[in-house]
Amino acid sequence: MNCAETAAMNVLEIKQLRKTYGTEVAVDDLSLAMTAGESLAVIGHNGAGKTTLMKLILGLTRSESGTIERYSYLPGCAQAAQARDAIGFLPEIVAFPGALTGRQMLHFYARLKNKTLGNCDELLDLVGLTDAAQRKINTYSKGMRQRLGLAQALLGQPSLLLLDEPTSGLDPFLRRHFYEIINTRQAAGASVMISSHALTEIEAQTDRIAIMKNGRLLNLGSLEQLRRKAALPVQLLVSCRGGTEVPAVQSVSMAAAPLKLGTGQWQFSCAEEQKLPLLHQLTAHGDIVTDIVVRPPRLDDLYAYFVNGDAE
C-alpha cells in the first residue's frame, strides 16, 4: 500500500463501524483515526461499547459493517504495512496460567511474537517484576499480574497499544508508574488507546478523549476542545476573612449567584471568558478575600454534560 506522507501517519483508521450482539447494538456508526504517537482515552458507562471496540480492532470479533485499517511503520520507511504483531493489548481482566513463572510466561509470548527473549528481562525490570520473575504467577498480587500484563503488551515495541481499564486495582503509586511507562512509549512513537472509568486520572494523561454512549461516539476531542464545546462555567472558590459577607461583584455576568459553601467560603460560577474580569474584581477586595481557587470544568463534569445532554 502506497500512502501519502500525511495520510500515512495514521496508525488506525476506523470507518462507520457497526457491531450488534443479537438485537443489542454494541458499536454503532463509529469512525475515528489515530495518528502515530497519539494517545486517546475512550470513556463511557459499562456497556457503552469500549471493550467491544477494542475487540473489533484486535480482530477478536467481526464487525457487521464498516472498516478497520491498521498500519505499522518501520523506522525510516514511509511505507505502511498492515500488521498484527505491531499491536499490544492489555485486557481488562488479565489472566495467566498460574503454574508458570512470570519470566516463563513472558518468554512464551515473546516466542509467539517471534521476538528475542533478551528483551524480556528488560521489560520485567521496567514494570518492576525482576524480583518476582522466578516466582509462579499464582503467587502474584493483582497489581503484579497487571504489571506482567503491561510487560507482555510492550513486547516488541508495538506501534499501537490498546489498554482496557489498565489501572483498575492498582494503588496510586503504581498508577503513576504505569502512566510513566506508557508515556515513555508514546514519546517513542507508539499510539495508545486507553479505556477507563477513572476520569480524573485519565484527563491528565491523554491527548484526545472519545466519549461513548450506547455504542455511539458522542464526542471526540482534546480536553480543551471538549471544554469549549460544552461551555460549562468555571468555578472560583473564594475564601473570605471572618464574616459572612459576600465580596461585591459588578458588571460581570455570572452563571449563577454566589453559593455559600461554608463559613467564609463562597463559590462563584461564570463563563470561561468572564473568568479574568471576575478574578480582577475579586482580587480588588484585598481586605476580605484571602484565597481564590480556580476550578475549570473537570472531565467528570464534561462527561456528565455530554452523556446526559444526549439523553434529553
Binding site: 484486535l58 477478536l60 498484527r84 504483531d85 509470548y109 509467539l112 500484563g149
Partner: peptide
C-alpha cells in the same frame, strides 16, 4: 482472549 491477540 490475550492469546488470540498474538500473531497466531
Amino acid at each position: 482472549l490475550l492469546l488470540l491477540t498474538y500473531p497466531i
